[in-house]
């Protein structure tokens, strides 16, 4: 096989050589190295060796390792994200609890305020009632006393009027019956 390819290549080289001669300067190794069949088995053999080596290196060592690294990283990222998610949930929870506590405290405060207000109101009402009662008692007493005073005053006026009338009648020289004078005065006062 090597012989025939060598011959063929030789022929090619010869032809090319003629052409190159005709062209003047001769590239001694005319022809494309790519088409030099002699080197094909060599290249193919070493290529196959190289490819097999690369395939074994990559598929046995490198690719599983890189895949593992990437998977690890993906896992780490997923875990971190999950942890962050959890922490965030916790924070939300804490905020909710805080808000709840705030609401509770406010309600408590409101309740206390309301209670205090109610108590004060009760005291106030009691005090007011007491004061009212006292005032009413005092008012009643005062009214009684005023009535008494008024009654006293009216009697005095009647006595004074009777005395004055008896004196006037006396002065006029008329002997007046005390009973008559008193009746007349009482009648006038009533009128």
């Amino acid at each position: 096989m090597a012989n025939t390819t060598t011959e063929a290549a030789g022929a090619v080289t010869e032809v090319a050589g003629h052409a190159a001669e005709a062209g003047g300067h001769a590239a001694q190794s005319a022809g494309m190295p790519q088409l030099n069949w002699e080197t094909f088995p060599n290249q193919i053999f070493w290529l196959v060796v190289a490819l097999v080596l690369i395939y074994l290196i990559l598929s046995k060592v490198a690719l599983p390792r890189i895949g593992g690294i990437l998977a690890d990283r993906q896992g780490a990222i997923t875990n971190d994200i999950a942890a962050a998610e959890e922490l965030k949930a916790k924070a939300v929870e804490a905020e909710k609890a805080y808000n709840q506590a705030l609401i509770d405290a406010r309600e408590e405060a409101n309740k206390i305020v309301a209670e205090a207000r109610a108590e004060i109101q009760k005291d106030l009402d009691k005090a007011t009632a007491k004061a009212d009662a006292e005032i009413a008692a005092k008012t009643a007493e005062s009214a009684k006393r005023i009535e008494e005073i008024r009654a006293g005053a009216a009697k005095n006026v009647e006595e004074v009027a009777r005395d004055a009338a008896a004196a006037i009648v006396d002065t006029m020289g008329v002997k007046a019956d005390a009973k008559t004078v008193a009746g007349a005065v009482t009648a006038r006062l009533k009128g």
Binding site: V12, V15, A16, G31, M32, L35
Partner: peptide, 8 residues
Amino acid sequence: ALLLMFAV
């Protein structure tokens, strides 16, 4: 072109 130049 290359074939014409170098290989023919």
